[in-house]
Design a protein around this nucleic acid. Structure first.
Lengths: 203, 203
DNA sequence: GTCTATAGCCAGATAGAC
DNA sequence: GTCTATCTGGCTATAGAC
């Protein structure tokens, strides 16, 4: 990690505040409903200043995605560092982390259809590298857990990986939270159970 | 069903064509990205004519939701009419129907956060009645299937109902279809399996 | 009820002074 | 790099002739 000048440190801190606001607003309202004016107001700077840091609204969203993927990779590495834990248990822990982040309103949600947004994302090497890195590490655990007999062998690893990724935007969490009758931990436990154990009774 | 004059029949057919276009565009691009200009062009009439039929863009979306809910209720009633079928089998059939509709690009997708859209929906008695009707019928089957021992008793019926509803916007279907390596039936079978059987191995 | 033309608004992005 | 002020385009919705 290169030493940063004081100037650059200030800049880093400011950009971090911007990404935090974007992350929260993306989780709250989604990409289309979020406006750059809101972001600027939330950070407390002028809109034109925002554009000195990020080239476009899409670039703001990409930065938020990079940050949440960095957090995900960190969560994965923490699991990788644990001893005496099976691949299945590690996958379960990372999935639980994902659900907790979403329930806490810290998971940015992007529309899968927006083409200019997708173009910005795939043109961002940081984003691409992180997605591939996270996919690869989870993919290894999935194969291992299938070998261990903990995960079903009836599904291809690809399907399992996508199903775990999709927990980041599972609407059931929001439904249950909106009902206001359950604790966050209870909600996470239930959704984790639907994902891993399924709805059909286990004999 | 009241007899309709020829004039009203023409009108009915035209509005049906409008709702079809809205339904497809909502499935394709989502509510925010869909423009009223596109809808008018797709139907082949002027935008001002559209507004003679529907008061707003939100009203268009509500009409599409009502239609897909009517289709859902019909699918439920077809299951209810079958003999020698358990509640669990009926739920599985309806869930399969939902996944097929989504994979076929016929499931309108609306942002859960948009407040003016939500206001239009909850102000529409047709929409509300259909949601309650569908929920009630599925809820009865869920309780029955739990009593039969086919669905897990570890989850409240509410959680199971939401989880089934969420299959209407499961992104895994689109991911797998985008990979282009699997048939639609294969994709539906896999996602249905993740939902009902879960990812963990069954002993 | 259909059309053309346009009003009115809002959001993304920029100009230019400091 | 920060600001104020503005441009530009696109979108919802409507006016008004036929």
């Amino acid at each position: 990690m290169a030493r940063l000048s004081f100037r650059d440190q200030v800049l880093r801190v400011r950009e971090d505040a911007i990404v935090s606001s974007v992350n929260r607003l993306l989780a709250e309202k989604g990409f289309d409903s979020m406006t750059v004016d809101e972001v600027a107001a939330d950070v407390g700077i002028a809109k034109a200043s925002l554009y000195k840091h990020f080239a476009s609204k899409e670039a703001l969203a990409a930065a938020a995605m990079v940050r949440v993927l960095q957090r995900a990779r960190q969560a994965i590495e923490e699991q990788a560092a644990t001893a005496d834990r099976s691949a299945f248990e590690r996958l379960r822990a990372v999935t639980r982390w994902t659900l907790q982040v979403q329930l806490a309103g810290e998971m940015p949600s992007l529309p899968a259809q927006n083409s200019t947004l997708r173009a910005t994302l795939v043109a961002d090497p940081k984003y691409i590298d992180l997605v591939m890195d996270v996919s690869e590490k989870l993919g290894e655990w999935i194969v291992q857990a299938q070998t261990d007999g903990a995960l079903t062998k009836a599904l291809p690893p690809e399907v399992i990986l996508y199903t775990l990724f999709a927990r980041a935007c599972d609407p059931v969490l929001g439904f249950l939270k909106a009902s206001g009758q359950h604790s966050d931990e209870q909600i996470v436990d239930w959704v984790l159970a639907t994902c891993l154990d399924g709805l059909a009774a286990r004999v």
